[in-house]
């Protein structure tokens, strides 16, 4: 039961043409543009001081945002999935909020709060604390846009798993932390990893939100995407695409890890199922 051969051929060609132009071709273009002026220019553009500073800033922003949102995600999922309380779905909607807000607005809210004309601006200026057009603003904007990633991955997963195993562990005398580390964490590890790598990809690649709070100071407040933008606007295409190629490699690693986790968790779920069946058969 399927379509006639010629219909299948048309559908396949259409789909593969669409996916080829939008998924494969961009990857080829990034690397061919990056190496257009040769390998030497490529490595030179990555090693120059402003590029190195941008790479460092990107690592710092992600290095703060990812662990914070990881801890938050686990804590929020624990509260939401393991307990009943009123207003739960409203809380989930609020957690998802940063996903439905334009990145530009995510940056803007911090400018309004901490900028010179913002609510806390005068006080910050008095105490000589810089948040906007400085590193703290970039970190804050990154934390905001990556806020829901881990939580949204874990909440449905932990809700589906229920609390029977944790209750059993507690009944058998395990402590709260012990229950979490020995029972909950092994059950959610793949979902957790999934959330973390997606969170990290977004943290390192965020453009709109950090662009608003950064001030674009070369060598000081530029992340990799912002540095690529500046180079591109200066018609230094090869260097811009060299920066872009770093992020593209990160993206490819992210996608490969995601596919590997999918595969691994499926294999594990099958093994657990088989073991359970065997145990039942033996009993």
């Amino acid at each position: 039961m399927s379509e006639p051969r010629w219909v299948r051929a048309i559908l396949m060609t259409g789909a593969l043409l669409f996916l080829g132009i939008f998924l494969l071709l961009p990857l080829i273009v990034v690397f061919s543009e990056a190496f257009k002026k040769g390998v030497e220019v490529y490595f030179e553009s990555i090693r120059e001081p402003d590029a190195v500073a941008a790479i460092w800033l990107t690592l710092i922003a992600a290095g703060i945002a990812v662990p914070l949102n990881l801890v938050f995600g686990v804590v929020a999922a624990w509260a939401i999935a393991k307990f009943q309380f009123p207003g739960k779905s409203f809380l989930i909607t609020l957690i998802d909020l940063p996903f439905s807000v334009s990145p530009v607005i995510s940056g803007l809210v911090y400018v309004l709060l901490f900028g010179l004309q913002g609510w806390l601006g005068p006080w910050l200026a008095e105490h000589d604390i810089k948040i906007i057009f400085a590193v703290p603003g970039i970190v804050l904007a990154t934390v905001f846009v990556t806020f829901p990633f881990v939580a949204r991955e874990l909440i449905p997963l932990m809700q589906a798993q229920g609390s029977e195993e944790e209750v059993a562990a507690r009944t058998l005398g395990a402590g709260g932390w012990q229950t979490f580390w020995r029972v909950t964490l092994p059950n959610i590890k793949w979902g957790l990893l999934y959330g973390v790598i997606l969170c990290n990809a977004r943290a390192m690649g965020e453009f709109g939100a950090v662009s608003v709070v950064s001030g674009h100071i070369r060598g000081a407040t530029n992340t990799i995407p912002l540095h690529a933008e500046i180079l591109y606007n200066e018609y230094n295409s090869a260097a811009a695409f060299a920066m872009a190629s770093l992020l593209t490699i990160l993206t490819l690693v992210t996608i490969a890890l995601k596919a590997a986790i999918d595969w691994k968790s499926q294999v594990e779920a099958r093994e657990v199922g088989e073991n359970r069946e065997r145990a039942l058969a033996e009993a």
């Binding site: 591109y232 872009a244 596919a259």
Partner: peptide, 17 residues
């Protein structure tokens, strides 16, 4: 697996590419 590319690729990279 590549279907996730537009979701994971930084928007600035997508823009210039």
């Amino acid at each position: 697996a590549l279907v996730d590319l537009p979701f994971a690729l930084p928007t600035a990279v997508a823009g210039i590419t």
